[in-house]
Each structure stands twice: as structure tokens, then as C-alpha cells.
Computed example of a mutant assay.
Amino acid sequence: MMTNLYFVRHAHSVYSPDERNRPLSERGHQDAARVAELLEPEYIHVLISSPYKRAVQTIEGLAERIGAGIILEEDFRERLLSEHPVDDFEHAVAKVWEDSSFAWEGGESNQAAQSRGVRALERVLEQYKGNNIAIGTHGNIMVLIMSHFDPRFDFSFWRQLDMPDIYKLSFSDQDLVEVQRIWN
């Protein structure tokens, strides 16, 4: 019995230092409508999201279309890169991908963030076995989780993601069988 997870990287958002409440931009709302169109035919049974507003807003349209609520899962939130804003975001992210145990002051290492995300994913696989599940999340944590199962999902893969982006991960129990990109 296959379980299909549809990781939905959030759509474009309006920048704000308030990570939790940063909303989608106008373009982001338009793309979120496209996310709903693409995922409605996938027979999604369960919707789960990071508690961050932009992740929730990206899958809200799908929730409305299928008449389902969205379960918030704190552990699908984006990785905390640093306690304070960084001067060079690209450099800061590259550094944590180069050394998986490295963390900027007050931030999470790749190891810590990946461990958190994988634990959440394993709970979802166990609780919703055999279902199709959409998960509203963020690029870095999504790729960290994916890289746990397959190392080809790395920093360079993260850099080429779209916003939004959708990847279908098919599991047999806890084993990843196939990954397919849905967003086009």
C-alpha cells in the first residue's frame, strides 16, 4: 500500500522579518490557485502545513476545493538559519549545507533541522498510511527531508526550486520508492 506525500513549497511571499506571519504576495496568491488546480485531481485525503502563514495560504485553496481542514505541524516549519538577520543569505545557506553540523548563532544546523523534519514525516507516514497527503512547507526543510532518503536532493537541488514547487514522494511503509515533480 503506497502513501503519497505532496510536498508543496510555499508560493512567493511579501518579505517581512516576521517569519511566522509573512503573507503571500499577489503573485503568490495566483500561484496558490494553480497549486489547488494541480492537486485537486490527486485525491488528497489529508492536508498538513507548517504554521507559517505563507505555507498555509499556499494550500488553503486546495483545502476549500476538497472540503478539508489543514492540520498545523510545527516541525514542518522552515529551518531557523540564524537568530539574527544574515548579511549574505546565499553564503549563510551555503555554509550550513557544506557542513551539516554547523549552525549560525541561534540557528539550526542541517542535521538538527533534518532530524526534526524527518521525525515529523515519519509520524505522518505512520498515522496516514495509504493516503494522499499534501504538506505545505518551505524549500530548505523540504529538501533536507528529501535528502535524508536520497542524497541527490542537495544544495544545488534546493537552489533550482521554484516558488511554489510541488514534489510527490511515494512511500511503501517508510521506504521512499519514487519522487516526481508535479509543478510545471
Rank of each mutant, 00 (worst) to 15 (best):
E42I: 04
R123D: 13
W158S: 06
N140L: 01
A94K: 15
E178F: 07
A120Q: 09
I135L: 04
E40M: 07
R20V: 08
L62W: 02
A120I: 07
L24F: 07
F76V: 04
K168C: 15
R20T: 10
N140A: 12
L125Y: 09
A11L: 12
L161C: 02
F89L: 13
D88A: 06
Y128T: 01
V124A: 02
L80A: 13
P51M: 07
L5R: 01
E26S: 14
E83P: 02
Q57I: 03
I141T: 12
E90N: 10
N131K: 15
G106I: 01
E74Y: 07
S156G: 02
F76A: 03
R123H: 13
A33W: 00
V118N: 07
Q180W: 00
D18W: 12
N110W: 10
S100R: 14
L121E: 09
K168I: 05
K95A: 15
R22A: 12
A94V: 06
A134Y: 03
L125N: 00
P164D: 10
S156C: 01
T58A: 09
Q174R: 13
L38W: 09
F153P: 12
D165P: 05
Y6F: 15
V118D: 09
I145W: 01
P85I: 02
A11Y: 09
P41G: 01
S156T: 14
Q30V: 14
S50Y: 05
L62M: 04
I166G: 08
Q114N: 11
R20S: 13
E60H: 11
D175K: 11
I70Y: 10
R77K: 13
F102V: 08
F171T: 06
G106K: 10
A120C: 11
R123S: 14
I44K: 03
L144F: 05
H91L: 09
W183S: 04
G107Y: 00
L5N: 04
W104Y: 07
V118L: 06
M1S: 11
V8S: 06
F171W: 08
A113N: 12
L144W: 00
F102Y: 15
I133A: 00
L47E: 04
K168D: 15
E74G: 05
N110F: 14
E83Y: 03
